[in-house]
Nucleic acid binder design. Structure first.
Lengths: 357, 357
DNA sequence: AACGAAGCTGTTATCGCTAACAGGCCAATT
DNA sequence: AATTGGCCTGTTAGCGATAACAGCTTCGTT
């Protein structure tokens, strides 16, 4: 014997009006006498009435829920982006439904998109910065409102991105300014657009300085792959500076260096990417490129709501939302001048290390 | 001019049946002739029909979306739990809607719960292991299906938890077995139930061994707070073993030790909690307690679906849902015997360190 | 042969809202 | 005084499904 939930007609009766007037008040429509409006709101309060989202969506042909497709929400970047999106969406009065990709291929994206469509979401944000995912977006019915993070689907749908190229440029220029002439790169998976952008920024910056880019070493964002890359680099004698594709790989790499008696930054300078919360407390504290994921989330929602309101995907209206978020360089202690004062007293030498053996 | 979406009646017409028969086929009801069923399914395929979730929910008075209330989805634990829940929910045919808490107090939980209720979720998982959140759960209308992670709301709603006490016990026993007689603890925030459980396990294990527990040092899960705790401990001379409340704090603490020339594990042994993916690649690789978040997610969904199907919150049916997930000890190189062979060649001494000064 | 009990299908009513239209009222215009 | 056009409000139809009931077969039984 469960009590019937309060519905709009109950409010209408209590306020002595029709249910349509209640609807008008709730949807902030004009043309309701202030006194009536107040009476309705009072009834709403008194009954603790909450409109039924499903009925509302069914009648109005729109829902107040946005979908987010993401891959590996444990990675710092996607997790932080998801949080930013969720907060921005909530501020705009929308709920957020998530669908995580188990596979990262075309079908995986299609199926995740389908799962969200089945929940009648009003629009979708896709955080799946792989080439395959970007391709899958193009197969999406154009009636679906969508924006992508870090996926330039050929202008098919709006894309919000951090300026990876410029971030990589900052990292490399920082190392060059310290006197390093050869900058290695441990990249993310080649099918990730971020990885591609960072490779491009790294390579072009070296090129602009008249330097050749060595072969990039491929990782998979994980600390484990950074460790593997570190082992490879440790076996060479021409390594003084490395730009890692993200902080986790930098962490793993520094572990490998440590095991081989290679000192950071005295022997090798390391720059990461992301500025994870732990970066400041690694040994040594990591110089890295910070991305503003909250800003990414905010711009995603702003762009998505615009698409929803227009009823049409906006085509290249880049004037409205600047799609590129600028990252910033955070200098800590994992970078030092090439052959700079080798002993203590040099430039930002980091904390003293003691021998352990 | 947008094309009308395919609805059930379209399928019915194409298959030459009534819409109700289509509904029966789609809901796997019996009493449909196999030939008819096949005809309907063929029509569904041909039109690429997808049922409208809102209409379905409105008519059937139930939705296929579950809500998750979480705090700080960037923290490893909540993020991993969320992922586990999402995957288990999808496997059960449910979508997942998230609401992140901006504030961690009573009102924050109530408002997040309300936001989810407005989306007509069928049930809610609350990942908000604070005492305040647990209290808020009790104010929830009992008609709402809900389960909590790590929050024993006095048996009001089912709770899925990792056995924090036993995890802490493993950590401390490991340190005791290495000969340490005084084990410090850097705890999480006191209002987090996990933090309380780990403190309890730590204290009782020491008690069982006839040892007194020093005053725990309070952190906030962040590497920064671990660093601060590390500075405090570094100023003492009676520190040989520390059990950190999580891996991030262990990381920050080790950084502080490093800056003060305190070697891990030669001078101080450190145990963390969580086994974040990076733990293996810290310097030194971190001994820690692993939690199985996927299992937590699976049990959450299982319990929640049971509540939904019963139509009533199950009261203390702990026999049905095994409430405690057992963590495991992962031994790496941040722990060593007390005063064990002080030089190289000792037991798991970790990689050699070189002087850097 | 007649009967009830299944099995299969269709018709109608609802779910709780918003959209569209249809008024009633009152001030401002002709 | 009659007409116009805003305001405000109510009535009636849907939205696209499921629930409940009813009707028609087709069996197996007595």
């Amino acid at each position: 014997m469960r009590e019937r939930p309060v519905v709009m007609i109950d409010v209408a009766r209590l306020a002595g009006v029709s249910h349509q007037t209640v609807s008008r008040v709730l949807n902030h429509q004009p043309n309701v006498k202030p006194a009536t409006r107040e009476r309705v709101l009072e009834a709403v309060r008194q009954l603790n009435y909450r409109p039924n989202a499903m009925a509302r969506g069914l009648a109005g042909r729109r829902s107040r829920v946005l979908g987010v497709v993401s891959f590996d929400t444990i990675l710092y970047g996607p997790a932080a982006t998801l949080l930013g999106i969720e907060q921005a969406a909530r501020a705009a009065g929308y709920g957020v439904s998530v669908a995580t990709l188990e596979r990262i291929d075309h079908d995986g994206v299609v199926s995740a998109l389908g799962a969200l469509a089945d929940q009648s979401v009003a629009g979708v944000v896709v955080i799946a910065p792989q080439a395959a995912a970007a391709a899958a977006l193009r197969t999406m019915p154009k009636s679906t409102a969508a924006v992508a993070v870090e996926a330039d689907a050929n202008g098919e749908i709006p894309a919000i991105s951090v300026d990876q190229v410029s971030g990589a440029r900052m990292a490399v220029e920082h190392l060059l300014s310290l006197g390093h002439r050869k900058v290695w790169h441990v990249s993310g998976p080649r099918d990730w657009l971020e990885a591609q952008g960072r490779i491009e920024g790294w390579r072009s910056t070296l090129g602009d300085a008249g330097l050749a880019a060595p072969r990039p070493i491929a990782g998979d964002w994980s600390a484990r792959s950074g460790y593997a890359a570190g082992l490879e680099l440790a076996s060479r004698d021409d390594v003084t500076a490395v730009f890692a594709g993200n902080d986790q790989m930098a962490l793993g790499m520094m572990r490998a260096f440590h095991e081989h008696g290679i000192r950071v930054p005295a022997d090798v300078s390391v720059v990461g990417f992301d500025d994870i919360p732990e970066a400041e407390f690694l040994s040594p504290p990591l110089t890295t490129i910070r991305q503003d994921f909250d800003e990414v989330g905010r711009r995603c929602i702003a762009a998505l709501l615009r698409v929803i309101d227009n009823g049409q995907p906006e085509r290249l209206t880049h004037s409205a939302v600047d799609p590129l978020v600028t990252p910033t360089l955070v200098v800590r202690q994992s970078t030092a001048p090439l052959r700079g004062a080798a002993g203590p007293g040099g430039m930002t030498p980091g904390p003293a290390l003691r021998a352990t053996g």
